[in-house]
Simulated scan of single mutants.
Amino acid sequence: MSNTPAAADSRSPGTEDTAVAVLQPDTTAAKAFVGRSPGQLAWLRLKRDRTAFGSAITVAVFILVALLAPVISRLYGMTPTAGFSDKLNFEGLPVGYLGGISGEHWLGLEAGSGRDLFMQLIFGLRTSLIIAFAAAIISIALGVVVGIVSGYFGGWVDQALTWLTDFMLAFPFLVFALAIIPIINTALYDVGEEVPGSFRITVIIAVFALFGWMTTARLVRGQVLSLREREYVEAARAAGAGSAHILFKQLLPNIWAPILVAFSLALPGFIAAEAALSFLNIGVVEPTPDLGRLVYYGRQWLGTPDWAYFMIPATAVFVVVLAFNLLGDSLRDALDPKAGK
Results as ranks from 00 to 15, higher is better:
residue 323 A to L: 05
residue 225 L to E: 09
residue 280 L to T: 02
residue 183 I to H: 02
residue 296 Y to K: 12
residue 174 L to Y: 11
residue 64 L to E: 07
residue 251 L to Y: 04
residue 1 M to K: 09
residue 43 W to F: 11
residue 44 L to H: 06
residue 75 L to M: 10
residue 47 K to W: 13
residue 294 L to D: 02
residue 161 L to V: 07
residue 299 R to W: 10
residue 330 S to Y: 04
residue 167 F to V: 14
residue 252 L to G: 00
residue 184 I to G: 01
residue 257 A to V: 04
residue 249 K to W: 05
residue 331 L to I: 09
residue 199 F to P: 07
residue 167 F to Q: 10
residue 109 L to E: 08
residue 225 L to Q: 13
residue 319 V to W: 06
residue 206 A to K: 08
residue 249 K to L: 11
residue 117 L to K: 01
residue 340 G to C: 04
residue 181 I to G: 02
residue 127 T to V: 10
residue 249 K to T: 12
residue 216 T to R: 00
residue 53 F to S: 11
residue 269 G to H: 04
residue 332 R to K: 05
residue 92 G to F: 06
residue 73 S to F: 02
residue 222 G to E: 09
residue 294 L to R: 00
residue 208 F to K: 05
residue 122 I to K: 01
residue 28 T to N: 14
residue 230 R to L: 13
residue 71 V to F: 14
residue 318 F to Y: 09
residue 125 L to F: 04
residue 4 T to M: 08
residue 144 V to P: 02
residue 136 A to H: 02
residue 318 F to V: 11
residue 163 W to F: 15
residue 216 T to S: 00
residue 1 M to I: 09
residue 58 T to K: 07
residue 89 N to R: 09
residue 93 L to Q: 12
residue 256 W to C: 09
residue 101 I to V: 14
residue 279 F to N: 00
residue 149 V to F: 14
residue 91 E to T: 13
residue 257 A to T: 09
residue 34 V to A: 11
residue 128 S to G: 03
residue 87 K to Q: 12
residue 55 S to Q: 01
residue 243 S to Y: 12
residue 311 M to Q: 04
residue 252 L to Y: 05
residue 82 A to Y: 09
residue 335 L to K: 09
residue 341 K to I: 14
residue 87 K to C: 07
residue 186 T to R: 14
residue 202 T to W: 14
residue 116 D to E: 00
residue 146 V to W: 03
residue 197 G to D: 07
residue 323 A to K: 06
